[in-house]
């Protein structure tokens, strides 16, 4: 019976945590794959820019972003966005997306075009407040759209003083 031989083989197997990664089995294929993925990333970048230029020209573009700071008093479920009474986005967040916001990610909720002049933006946030209570809060912002792209941030942050969430809107230059 080859008792010691099999033991040493298994012992090596269980202690292999520190082994470096092996070289890819087929270097040619790996190289071609790397090159293709690079070219695909490049064309996606170019097409992304083309799409933005074409669909959302800089002089009429408006983009609305959602961000979260802390999130102790509010767990985001969904957000509804309207501009001038027209509903433009109704977004339900997955757990993964809500976590990404908590970590510091900023979601581009909506991108579209607006004419020069005054517009009313309304955002309604739904989620859970403290003690798992349903929480719904709206915020309104008047935008004076000039010539040039306009970016709006809808920020959910914690108001420590009142132990409740705060919904702030900010226009970025």
């Amino acid at each position: 019976m080859n008792f010691p031989k099999s033991l040493s083989a298994l012992a090596l197997l269980c202690c292999s945590v520190a082994a470096p990664g092996a070289e890819a089995p087929s270097a040619g294929l790996d190289q071609d794959l790397q090159n293709l993925k690079k070219d695909v990333l490049d064309i996606n970048r170019d097409l992304f820019v083309l799409q933005e230029d074409l669909l959302f020209p800089a002089n009429t573009q408006v983009a609305v972003f959602v961000s979260m700071d802390v999130g102790l008093f509010f767990a985001l479920d969904s957000v509804k966005l309207s501009i001038d009474g027209v509903e433009l986005a109704h977004y339900l967040y997955t757990e993964r997306e809500a976590e990404a916001l908590l970590k510091g990610g900023v979601q581009r909720l909506y991108v579209g075009n607006l004419k020069v002049g005054k517009h009313e933006l309304v955002a309604v946030f739904n989620g859970k407040g403290t003690h798992e209570r349903d929480y719904r809060r709206g915020t309104t912002l008047e935008i004076d759209k000039g010539i040039g792209a306009q970016f709006v941030e809808l920020k959910i942050s914690d108001l420590q003083r009142k132990q409740q969430p705060e919904f702030v809107t900010r226009i970025w230059e």
Partner: peptide, 16 residues
């Protein structure tokens, strides 16, 4: 601090 919303949008995808 996020100093640019578009950079924040990149992070939003990255964190997922």
């Amino acid at each position: 601090q996020i100093r640019d919303l578009h950079y924040g949008d990149v992070l939003f995808h990255f964190y997922q």
